[in-house]
Write a protein that binds this DNA or RNA. Structure first.
Lengths: 203, 203
DNA sequence: GTGCTGGGTGTGAGCGTTCACTCACGTATA
DNA sequence: TATACGTGAGTGAACGCTCACACCCAGCAC
């Protein structure tokens, strides 16, 4: 709750612009009721603009929903990659990656929730245009874990499984925050999450 | 892949009935493209019946999607509760609960995927009709963990957090199986999942 | 047996509504 | 004057759902 996004700060657009207000309104509605259930009329009304204005900035509702998803998807990938690069030992990499996730989530919780809740909708569209690894936070995490296993830092075992389990610790906690089961900012639990992730990796 | 559900076995209905075929067809389509994106015409076509027949068995598309969600939701709650009851120590409870999840998932993977992918859509409808704990697998797991913390079997710490992290290990792995990142039946990873869950709980 | 009845089940053209999207038009800034 | 931005009534298409009709078959009287 420390750094809450105002209604003006955009996802793709500069803060204060009409495009930013459209993105913010769409984001909230998409999170609350799902992309398909939200109408363009509602987005327009919630943005305080007309429906036509919406189509000045995005060619379609689908393009709007996709652009916002891949904005955070790409951001996550970049920050996870940077976090992994800034540490040497796997424990420190894990801590840095958890810190990156938590920071991005708390910085723009609605956008992060949107990513979490719609991943299965947009992932099929992802690897078509880009190389399978770059731009995908999961693939980057998996690469880090594979390396650590290869170098004997982590016990042998299916890296894909370790990746899923480690990410699950953080992402399910975020989900439970959406459901109201976990309270407060994710950042308040960063230390516990990091310890849990490391425990999973070493198990 | 051992015990794959045939197209005839129902979710709510007896195998081989029209209702069961409708449910199976709807389930596959809902998983593949999302509830809202699937039309009643498509469900009817995929079931091999007319659209009208669909409304002989369910009053609405929404009722169909809800009934199937709560069928597995209730089943998960019951089996998790039973699993927790059959063991004394928290490690054994954890193993039994993981085993229950894995078994239910592999028994009807499409239905389990559906539950996983649509939880955030239907959960708001859940606690209105029932008591908040019974019938909710997450609440039951949280109860088990709270007890274990209280009795000194697990280190002190936020039980809600431990619950999310432990469930995340299993559920994110299931998600990654949907994404094609984890291969084979969940059962093949049961031992690794159980160890990871226990490691998280003790962290 | 035959004939009648009634409930359960399946059909598909059709209904009213709502949706994503368009476009002719206004306005502001350079 | 030209370009960008904003407007909102309007459009065709597609949606969830209905309904008049047909069929099947068990139960029962004769």
């Amino acid at each position: 709750m420390l750094t809450e996004k105002t209604e003006q700060s955009g996802v793709t657009a500069a803060p204060g612009t009409t495009k930013a207000r459209i993105e913010r309104a769409a984001l909230s509605l998409f999170c609350a009721r799902g992309v398909d259930a939200v109408t363009t009329r509602e987005i327009a009304a919630a943005s305080g603009v007309s429906e036509g204005a919406l189509y000045r900035h995005y060619p379609s509702k689908d393009a709007l929903s996709q652009a916002m998803f891949f904005a955070i998807h790409k951001r996550l990938a970049e920050e996870v990659e940077a976090a992994a690069a800034e540490a040497a030992k796997i424990e420190d990499k894990a801590r840095a990656i958890v810190a990156a996730y938590v920071r991005i989530a708390d910085e723009d919780w609605t956008l992060f929730s949107y990513h979490l809740l719609t991943t299965h909708r947009f992932l099929p569209y992802a690897d078509k245009s880009e190389s399978p690894k770059s731009g995908n936070p999961v693939a980057i995490v998996e690469g880090v874990i594979m390396d650590a296993v290869k170098h004997g830092e982590l016990p042998q075992g299916d890296a894909a499984l370790k990746t899923a389990a480690a990410l699950g610790v953080v992402l399910q906690t975020a989900l439970h925050k959406i459901y109201g089961r976990v309270k407060g900012a994710l950042g308040a639990h960063e230390e516990a999450l990091a310890r849990a992730v490391i425990a999973v990796l070493k198990s």
